[in-house]
Design a protein around this nucleic acid. Structure first.
Length: 449
RNA sequence: GGCCCUAUCGUCUAAUGGUUAGGACGGCACCCUUUCAAGGUGCAAACCCGGGUUCGACUCCCGGUAGGGUCACCA
């Protein structure tokens, strides 16, 4: 197999969205599978929408997911070299582009436009924005390697599109020029991008042709849809990688889930790391229809990957979500008790908070025999010389038998008195970690607040 | 509205003309069990509709319908 070179070309307008991450993953896998290179290119030619800090954030999110790029470019830097201006002028010279001095359209006030041919194409300006002179009565087509189909457009339906902005916009290229010039200059062999780019593909096809470039393979990926309909909205915030990690999701869980949105291997295997994915990746496994983002399944992946962590790894992750003064050694002992009870790392606070802070115990959570249960528990636990699980287990089960208590309600009262909650890690194991002193103090406190 | 893409359980998907239409998440039930989980077992749950082609269509073709995208000197 010949070597594939791909790129991920985000615009630095915010955080890395999981849709973007997905495009990056597939591009990465496509290149790496062949032993080729993966390029990161920042498409920052729109000054107005640039968000400061977003380039760093983009990089960080990619790194956390394990996606390492082999080459890195920034478009405004390349624009300073004059490369886009030079190529745009070549198009003017060959008669395939023209200068335009119309006022830029405001899409919001004008809605969709049906004017395809720009009036300036017949004028003979020598400055202004440079637009593509789209030919009449031709058919443009390409084979999409993801949809696996030939796709065609009639040029009569393609608009004269701006390629290079005018002087007042610093002669920066638009996406349409920049992407073609850069992909060619960087030797990109496979372009993989979102479905939303499909309608502008005929423009790029024309630019490739007029500039005399060999064009790469092109494939369009499905869009991730919101459960409420429409494209997954950034406004909901929690679909950016950074926010999700802050919510307690693991990068490897996000990665694994996202890989499976719109792609599946022949054997339908579901669990894999990035490295394993690269090995089995096959572009024929793409789904053609848009998948819907399903948080329940993501949660399942997250729980799965939490359970795969060693106690040490997990305890370290917990630190992020707990008060600063938490003792790491104690946390390490707690970890195996909570491991299989977590969906998100952030839930450690509510599940294990009682270890670090005396809980408020609501009386109504206690059963009607609570005071008897707790009194007897105090008496028998007080006598214990060795504070370990075996001792506590045998002493308490012995008590239940002797007094004829109901096992479930006895332990529930103990649980509530110690933790303040009816949903907790195993109570005897918890008491061992909590220690004799605190345990007895809490039990007494509940009886006599 | 023009153009383009798409259509299998609620969701993610497998199937490449002949299957009891398979798996996963979620749901439900049972087992395990001192709560909740995790784990185990089982159950319910899908080929958008209408025409063709064919001995035979989830699979191929056409038409509806539905969903999505896009129509900026934004990417």
């Amino acid at each position: 197999m010949s070597k594939v070179k791909t790129r991920f070309a985000p615009s630095p307008t915010g955080l890395l969205h999981i849709g973007g991450l997905r495009t990056a993953i597939y591009s990465y896998a496509l290149a790496k599978k062949s032993g080729g290179k993966f390029v990161l290119r920042i498409e920052d030619t729109d000054q107005k929408r640039l968000v400061t800090g977003s380039v760093e954030n983009l990089k960080n999110s990619l790194i956390k997911s394990g996606l390492k790029w082999d080459e890195y470019y920034v478009q405004t830097e390349r624009a300073k070299q004059g490369i886009y201006l030079k190529e745009a002028k070549r198009l003017i010279e060959s008669g395939n582009a023209f200068y335009c001095r119309c006022k830029p359209k405001n899409p919001k006030s004008e809605g969709y436009s049906n004017i395809l041919r720009d009036p300036c194409r017949s004028k003979d300006y020598e400055t202004g924005a440079i637009k593509l002179k789209v030919p009449d009565n031709e058919v443009l087509g390409y084979h999409d390697f993801i949809i696996n189909k030939e796709i065609f457009w009639k040029t009569d339906l393609v608009a004269d599109t701006t390629l290079l902005k005018s002087e007042e916009f610093s002669n920066l290229p638009t996406y349409h020029l920049a992407v073609v010039v850069d992909d060619h200059a960087m030797g990109i062999t496979h372009v993989l991008r979102g479905h939303d780019w499909m309608p502008s593909t005929p423009i790029h096809l024309l630019v490739y042709k007029y500039l005399g470039y060999k064009r790469p393979e092109v494939g369009h990926l499905t869009d991730i849809l919101d459960p409420d309909g429409g494209k997954l909205s950034k406004r909901k915030g929690s679909v950016s990688c950074e926010v999700m990690i802050g919510d307690g999701y693991l990068p490897e869980a996000i990665l694994n889930y996202v890989i499976l949105l719109g792609w599946a291997p022949k054997d339908n295997r579901e669990i894999f790391s990035l490295g394993e994915f690269v090995k089995i990746f096959d572009p024929r496994g793409f789904q053609k229809s848009n998948p819907i983002f399903d948080r329940a399944k993501l949660d399942w992946f997250n729980g799965y990957y939490i359970r795969q962590k060693t106690d040490k790894e997990l305890a370290k992750l917990f630190l992020e979500f707990l008060p600063k003064n938490v003792d790491y050694k104690t946390l390490l002992r707690i970890t195996p008790l909570v491991k299989e009870r977590l969906t998100k790392v952030s839930e450690i606070g509510t599940l294990a908070g009682f270890f670090f802070e005396k809980p408020k115990v609501k009386q109504k959570l206690l059963g009607k025999n609570a005071s008897v249960h707790l009194k007897e528990a105090i008496t028998i636990l007080k006598k214990l010389r060795e504070w370990n699980l075996d001792q506590i287990n045998s002493v308490l089960t012995g008590l239940i038998k002797d007094k004829g208590f109901e096992t479930g309600s006895f332990f529930m009262d103990l649980r509530v008195a110690i933790t303040g909650s009816r949903v907790t890690p195993p109570i005897n194991e918890s008491i061992v970690i909590l220690g004799k002193l605190k345990t007895l103090r809490r039990l007494k406190f509940v009886l006599q607040p």
